[in-house]
Write a protein that binds this DNA or RNA. Structure first.
Lengths: 129, 129
DNA sequence: TATTCACGTTACTATTTACTAACGTATTGA
DNA sequence: TCAATACGTTAGTAAATAGTAACGTGAATA
């Protein structure tokens, strides 16, 4: 797994915490909550009654390690704000390259309906000689 | 938790398996492997030697439930192909709305440096007297 | 028909993750 | 100083997840 880090693995490695952070619906809800404006930790706790304060802080820690949330100290309050840079990186590294497939989606559907792999003559080109 | 599904919860609910599927680096590598062309299950197994066949199938199942991979039967072979529609949905529901923040990022940085929340709150000094 | 091969499943284990509860720390303001 | 508040941590537990190992199923081919 670390062997294939020579190509785009490095980027993958850096974006992995971001993917992990975004995989949880509660964390995505917190991000949505932080989108209009920054919020203190207590404000977040009050907004999600089904979570304990510790649950919120744990999620915030994950989001912070992913770089999706910045926290600023203000007296005894912590102001959490959204950082969209990792989301943009995900877009650039993942959505962008796949976006070209959206345009050629019909070709793929056609390929899928016919053979799914390619012309039959090069069927066992890989695997064994 | 299901109570707040009235707003954007429905879309979140549908996209949740997609996020979960994308949160694993191995599954993202499989998607990258399927991007140029469709592959049989055995081809995927041979491409990822650090995984057992069952591990690959487990990941494929997650990807299939997320709608990211389609599988077509061809005799005793299963041809797995990439489906980019869920990725596009994630882009539309998440990257798009946040994209407007990228343009106003400087404003947010400025806000963060000054107050972090808004001008209406009083700014207390941090030093201990 | 019998063997090989591609695919899939059942059973089990180790690890990670999410969560609640209770306790501790530091700042604010009377 | 003393109490209230906002934040954070330690401890412990339940659940989800990833993984290996061994076994079963069905199609292609000699």
């Amino acid at each position: 797994m670390t062997k294939q880090a020579a190509g785009a693995g490095n980027i993958e490695d850096k974006l992995d915490p971001v993917w992990k952070a975004l995989s949880d619906p509660t964390r995505r809800a917190i991000l949505d909550f932080l989108r209009p404006r920054s919020r203190t930790t207590t404000q977040i706790v009050e907004t999600f009654p089904h979570l304990s304060r510790f649950g919120v802080m744990k999620h915030l820690e994950v989001l912070r390690e992913a770089g999706l949330v910045h926290t600023r100290e203000d007296g005894r309050q912590r102001v959490n704000s959204l950082n969209v840079v990792p989301i943009r990186q995900i877009y650039e590294r993942w959505v962008g390259p796949y976006q070209e497939l959206w345009t050629s989606e019909l070709l793929r559907i056609k390929e899928f309906a016919e053979l799914g792999d390619g012309p039959k003559e090069k069927k066992n080109k890989k695997g064994k000689s």
